[in-house]
């Protein structure tokens, strides 16, 4: 039994310490956003945020997560209350099949947390590990830029702390 903190909640999970986080999120905690794409660290579909940084959950064994905070796309917002990054992707219609999108969003979210005004080159560099086969790239780039603006606006207009870090 291990304790895993996901989206602000503690979960007791029965998994070997060498189990990659991805399977614990999907199988034990029953979250959908982190996707299996390769299991090899080559595609980015499985990205989630751990302590503010985007990591590939398919190659991150549970042993590394002791005491850390995991955030998945579900933890950012919901259909009724979307987070800025989610609004941005909806407003830009930045998906075709959408399978790659959660990983892209988590990477972008992590980037925007530490760099609220990334240049285009910085966004591309951050997303370099992420594959999209539908060719949604132009829209993804636009959505990340829009998210930066939305987050800035949200920061400016609110003094409350956001929990989803």
């Amino acid at each position: 039994m291990m304790t895993l903190k996901v989206n602000g909640r503690e979960h007791q999970v029965d998994a070997d310490p060498d189990t990659p986080l991805l399977y614990v999120l999907r199988d034990d905690i029953k979250l959908n956003a982190a996707k299996f794409g390769c299991g090899l660290g080559q595609c980015g579909s499985c990205a989630v945020i751990v302590d503010g940084k985007a990591i590939l959950s398919c190659i991150t064994p549970m042993v590394l997560l002791e005491g850390k905070q995991v955030t998945t796309l579900e933890g950012l917002g919901s259909v009724s209350e979307p987070a800025p990054i989610q609004r941005a992707f909806i407003e830009e219609q930045a998906a075709q099949c959408g399978y790659c999108i959660p990983g892209m969003m988590m990477r972008a979210q992590a980037l925007l947390l530490k760099n609220s005004k990334p240049t285009d080159a910085e966004i591309r560099a951050a997303l370099e590990q992420h594959l999209c086969r539908c060719g949604t790239h132009m829209r993804i780039l636009r959505a990340v830029r829009r998210a930066a603006r939305l987050m800035e606006a949200a920061d400016a207009s609110s003094t409350t702390n956001r929990s989803a870090q």
Binding site: D16, P17, D18, T19, P20, I59, T60, P61, V63, L64
Partner: peptide
């Protein structure tokens, strides 16, 4: 997987 290092290796590298 007796040590942290070994467990990390099995989970992150061995595959």
């Amino acid at each position: 997987t007796d040590t942290a290092g070994a467990t990390i290796y099995v989970g992150a590298c061995a595959s």
